[in-house]
Design a protein around this nucleic acid. Structure first.
Length: 892
RNA sequence: AGACCCGUAGCUCAGUUGGUUAGAGCGCUACGUUGACAUCGUAGAGGUCAGCGGUUCAAGUCCGCUCGGGUCUACCA
């Protein structure tokens, strides 16, 4: 069964994925006795397509899941998609507008528009699923969830109702971030800032000079604030002034004293506009100031600014207003200024702070029962991370997390869009209000028009996905009953790892912590692993407009296979580190896969030759005698130990690199060469060692390269499917320190002879005559004769007795364990002595450093005894080497 | 404005709790391919670990400052 010349991913990937899926390997068993390992997949937008951010997420999560599944855990990876409210609704509306519908909301009405959005989602949802499959993701499709599934909706309503009852959700007029373009509020976290050139105006204002970058809002001022200790303004505090605006209203402002005002800035007097600034609103609440709204939800000036300005856009009004002020001689100065504009991350349009009646989550209110006390949401989310119950990787992100909590304001959760979970509140007339999943039975109730912030439902995702759909459909159950009766929740929550990009730590991770602890009394996950961004080779964010550097995961999978994509994303990957992904990295992955494939071909042929009739699965490396075979097994043992440690530490890139080094350097470059010649090539134990070792490498590679390894596992005769094979553990029977050391000396011997060949500029075709003078362990050298001969291309190797030294007349290399002489006709003596002198100088320099250390009394007394002992041993080795080289140089 | 991260070979990065003469991949140079290798192999060049100071017997590693790059948060009357 000869393997094909090279691996063709397009030919096998689909088929392999289908076999995995049909075997049930992805499906977790809630009745199993195994310890659970659970990951909730961050749900991609249901209507989206796979980008490199998703690809790195899938690669890392699948790596963990496959590793844990093979390690004997009941591994569950819950896939899902998100309804991405604002994004989806605006896409559908834009499509309708492109088709010529001017006002889709107005023309279709709520019910019809929501139906069309749902259709749109249903039509495009399949694409992202196929793409997740194409990556090789071994997630449990039988448990796939969508944030709009009925039982998830039930959970959303149940949590809302309970929070309302506990006073953690309230309705009230507050300053919200209003996007006039999307006609909805957005949360603080959905805003980003951009610096823009602007003007800073200082104008006369009653007895004050007041600065502002937004003069058009000044008719909305209801106070002037000064610092209580500011001498200049002290006499005015408490007084009231009338300020007439040219062609505008005359407003009444009270002078208040507030610590918030910085006397150093500007004139020390600050116009307070409570309706259009978060900070001013807070001040207004404290001082009981009235609100005057001068900008409306349509982004135009309201009647409150007077007839002249009303109806203008903000920009128009600013221009007009400034002109009037200047004309009236009230403008003191106008300066250039850099204003940081707040923009909506979705629409990229300016956001206006406006007063509005909205639903909020109270984050400061001590109403959450936790460990026998009542604490606030803020406190509880701080505590679980502080106590280490939830561990964030990379650790420094914890600081960012705490900082975010410190600055967190009440969270506005209502949105004025139609696509999403509608707020479960029902009104009748002015007075009656009911909160619950369904309206009361009697007539006349109308549901709140608004929907919930998408993150409100995503925040429940680690557990709402584990709620049993049938239980979720039962009427009359409260939240804790729903959870109690859902076997998956009981078995698989809290989840093990939350793996996502650090850019949504606040949006999502923090909110899951907050909502899940409140709703279930459990943390949502034990470890948060935050991966970095995937950047292009120039270190910029991937962008389709930059064709030459943008990597499209689906195109790459199409061209080179999912394994290449995955390994490229995993190698060099560490928590929180951005990753530059370019062609080179992809080529590197491809080469490695090619190397694995070719090594498999050789392994297959070799095992076939030695153990012709043998059942391969029964080949076990017991009673291994040859030092090189023992060396291979002990190297494998070391490798397994290291890889396991790196995986446990979440340093996946290191794990891949560690396997790569060993696979290429130890297995391919040495062992696979060694088994081509006698005596290894004829020993039966070799077949067992080679087969066992190679299959172990396949297992180690599998979480990184699932397709090619699965294919090879089958081709080479592995038992069952690799996806279910047991993960390698270090085998304590495979410890032979002496053999391992001796073979290491053999490897150095090879390098030494190759060095001589290069230095003496001998043709590679020249067959060498080599004499080896071991300082110890002659047996291993002798046992490796043919191997060394092959690796250095020698026609003759002679092993002298232990203790003899190399003769004159040959070119010699010196090592602590041996001397080796190569006989050639016209040796380049100068080159040899240059090399030996350099080696001697190095050894001397090193020795003198070691001796300096050993002569230091403090080192001897204060350093760890092991360090001292090691230094002594090293010094001894150097002395031996120096003596040998000195002798050799003396002779020539 | 504050916080955090990063600065190690031409490039991308490793460097474990301080302890051999600082490593790998890619690239580069030279040579060669004997059948596992859309290649691969061998050898080689290349680093004052950003700079300064401190702690220590010992610093790429810990601390402080400076410079350079990046990110986030806040605020800007």
């Amino acid at each position: 069964m000869a393997l094909e010349k090279y691996f063709e991913p397009q030919k096998y990937e689909r088929e392999i994925y289908r076999r995995w899926e049909e075997s049930g390997a992805f499906v977790a068993d809630s009745d199993s006795e195994k310890p659970p390992f659970v990951i909730t997949m961050p749900p991609p937008n249901a209507t989206g397509t796979l980008h490199t951010g998703h690809a790195v997420m899938l690669a890392i999560e699948d790596l963990m899941i496959r590793w844990k599944r093979m390690s004997g855990y009941e591994a569950l990876w819950v896939p899902g998609t998100d309804h991405a409210a604002i994004a989806t609704e605006s896409v559908v509306i834009r499509n309708l507008q492109a088709e010529g519908m001017a006002d889709p909301r107005g023309e279709l009405g709520r019910e019809e528009l929501v139906r069309r959005i749902a259709d749109y989602v249903a039509n495009s949802q399949g694409r992202i699923r196929q793409q997740i499959r194409a990556m090789g993701s071994s997630c449990d499709w039988s448990r796939e969830r969508y944030t709009m599934d009925p039982q998830l909706h039930r959970c959303v309503d149940a949590v809302f109702a309970r929070m309302f009852r506990d006073g953690l959700i309230y309705r009230g007029p507050r300053i919200v971030n209003w996007d006039p373009h999307l006609q909805t509020t957005i949360s603080d976290d959905e805003i980003y800032y951009q610096d823009r050139p602007a003007k800073f105006y200082t104008m006369r204002y009653g007895p004050f000079l007041v600065g502002t970058s937004r003069p058009e809002t000044k008719p909305g001022d209801t106070a002037v604030a000064v610092h209580p200790d500011d001498e200049r303004w002290r006499e005015h505090i408490g007084k009231t002034y009338e300020v007439p605006w040219p062609k505008g209203p005359t407003i009444t402002v009270r002078v208040i004293a507030d610590e918030h005002v910085d006397p150093e800035t500007g004139t020390g007097a600050l116009g307070v506009t409570p309706a259009h600034s978060h900070v001013d609103f807070e001040m207004a609440e404290k001082h009981d100031l009235p609100l005057i709204q001068v900008i409306g939800e349509d982004g135009r000036m309201t009647e409150a600014v007077g007839e002249h300005y009303a109806g203008m856009t903000v920009e128009e009004c600013r221009e007009a207003f400034v002109a009037e002020i200047e004309q009236a001689g009230l403008m003191e100065k106008v300066e250039d200024y850099t204003q940081s504009m707040s923009l909506c991350y979705r629409s990229k349009q300016p956001v206006e702070p406006l007063p509005k009646e909205q639903w909020f989550v109270a984050v400061e209110k001590p109403a959450v029962p936790w460990r026998g006390r009542k604490v606030s949401l803020k406190q509880v989310m701080r505590e679980v991370v502080q106590s280490g119950e939830i561990h964030i990787l990379p650790e420094h992100q914890e600081k960012t997390y705490f900082h975010w909590i410190d600055n967190l304001r009440d969270w506005c959760i209502s949105r004025q869009i139609w696509w999403g979970h509608r707020i479960p509140v029902w009104y009748r007339g002015e007075e009656d209000m009911y909160v619950g999943h369904r309206p009361p039975r009697d007539e006349g109730w109308a549901q709140d028009e608004d929907t919930l912030d998408t993150w409100f439902s995503s925040a429940l995702f680690t557990w709402s996905t584990l709620v049993d759909p049938e239980v979720g459909a039962e009427a009359g159950l409260d939240l804790s009953e729903i959870l109690e009766r859902s076997p998956d929740f009981q078995r698989f929550h809290p989840t093990s790892v939350m793996e996502t990009g650090y850019d949504i730590l606040f949006f999502w991770v923090a909110r899951m912590i907050l909502m899940t602890i409140y709703a279930t009394g459990e943390i949502p996950f034990r470890t948060v692993y935050l991966h970095g961004l995937v950047l292009d080779v120039d270190g910029d964010k991937m962008s389709k407009t930059k064709h030459e550097t943008c990597v499209d995961p689906m195109d790459t999978i199409e061209e080179t296979g999912a394994d290449v994509m995955r390994l490229a994303l995993l190698s060099g990957n560490a928590p929180g580190k951005d990753l530059k992904l370019g062609r080179e990295r992809l080529i590197g992955s491809k080469r490695l896969i090619n190397k694995i494939w070719n090594a498999a071909k050789l392994t297959d042929a070799t095992v076939e030759r030695i153990a012709t009739a043998c059942d391969r699965a029964s080949l076990a490396p017991d009673r291994v005698e040859h030092p090189v075979n023992r060396w291979m097994l002990s190297r494998l043992r070391t490798l397994v130990t290291r890889v396991n440690r790196r995986l446990q530490d979440f340093t996946f890139g290191d794990a891949a690199e560690t396997i790569r080094q060993s696979f290429w350097g130890e297995l391919c470059d040495f062992y696979l060469e060694a088994v081509k010649v006698e005596p290894l090539s004829e020993l039966e134990e070799t077949a067992a060692v080679l087969f066992h070792t190679f299959m172990a490498y396949l297992k180690l590679w599998h979480p990184f390269l699932p397709f090619v390894t699965e294919k090879l596992w089958g081709e080479l005769g592995g038992e069952g499917m690799l996806i279910n094979a047991p993960w390698p553990q270090p085998d304590d029977a495979h410890v032979w320190p002496e053999d391992a050391n001796d073979v290491a000396a053999v490897l150095r011997l090879v390098v030494a002879v190759r060095g001589i060949r290069a230095e003496q500029e001998l043709e590679p075709a020249t067959k060498l005559k080599v004499e080896v003078y071991p300082k110890s362990h002659a047996e291993t050298f002798a046992a490796s004769r043919a191997i060394v001969a092959r690796l250095v291309r020698a026609e003759e190797i002679h092993f002298a007795t232990v203790g003899s030294t190399a003769p004159t007349g040959a070119t010699v290399a010196i090592d602590p364990s041996f001397e080796v002489a190569v006989r050639i006709g016209e040796a380049d003596r100068e080159a040899e002595s240059r090399r030996l002198k350099k080696q001697l100088d190095d050894a001397r320099r090193h020795l003198s450093e070691l001796e300096k250390r050993l002569a230091n009394e403090s080192f001897l007394t204060r350093a760890k005894p092991e360090a001292v002992a090691r230094t002594r041993a090293d010094a001894e080795t150097q002395r031996t080497t120096i003596a040998s080289i000195g002798e050799r140089l003396g002779q020539t």
